[in-house]
Nucleic acid binder design. Structure first.
Lengths: 111, 111
DNA sequence: TTCCTTTATCGTAAAATTACGATGAATATT
DNA sequence: AATATTCATCGTAATTTTACGATAAAGGAA
């Protein structure tokens, strides 16, 4: 039994977990930073920038796309990616909510 | 070859990825929230609160401990967990840096 | 001392993740 | 038309993650 019981959690929690997972790999963080620094970015530029094979980078791009953090459109034989700032903002908001929730209830701890 | 090439990334990026991974599961988010709301929390209380077996919860607690986000001390036959707010702040700082970096370089996108 | 409670760890199984080379489809270039 | 470039996807392999039951260790209660 390896079924993830995500149904048992609030949708907010599940969404935060999904977005956190999207940025839980150094390559995917770098990809987001690279795209952001160009506004828009071709797959090839990202591949050049990373110590990973093209197939692997494409896989990471797919993960980011599925999480909604980037979107890509075909431009001739190339793929042009850009950040979805709406989703990124949602991640930011969910994280803010998380930190506020965790920190406001902060209490003494004997560690 | 499935060796993660984390050496190729900056330590900041790797650290952010590690901490993001720690909160990339709904159960682990809930655990942090639960502990925070009590200041300190016994393993059993967390198990009660989650739709997961005790062994699974212990596993998630271990992951959070290894990421440095919580610390636990033995209290009789129980295990008492609390949040490590220093690490949590580091996560917050790394995330802030990430969002600032990504958003300041924000440019037009045709999506 | 004997028994119960608590929880970490072991063993195991299924699925997901990470990585790569090879390939094919689409578009440019010659 | 023939060739080259770009990139998503397929196939595959190793590893990690997620989940659970069973068990053992440690401490408290009887």
């Amino acid at each position: 039994m390896t079924t993830e019981k995500t149904e048992q959690f609030t949708s907010k929690t599940v969404k935060l977990a999904q977005l956190a997972k999207a940025i839980s790999h150094p390559a995917r963080i770098e990809i987001l930073q690279k795209i952001a620094s160009h506004g828009t970015c071709i797959c090839g530029e990202i591949v050049e920038h990373l110590p990973l094979a093209q197939a692997t980078v494409s896989q990471h791009l797919k993960a980011l796309k599925e999480a909604g953090l980037i979107c890509g459109e075909i431009d001739g034989p190339r793929s042009c990616y850009c950040i979805d700032y709406t989703q990124l903002s949602e991640l930011k908001d969910l994280l803010d909510g998380f930190f506020v929730g965790v920190e406001t209830s902060r209490q003494k701890c004997n560690c």
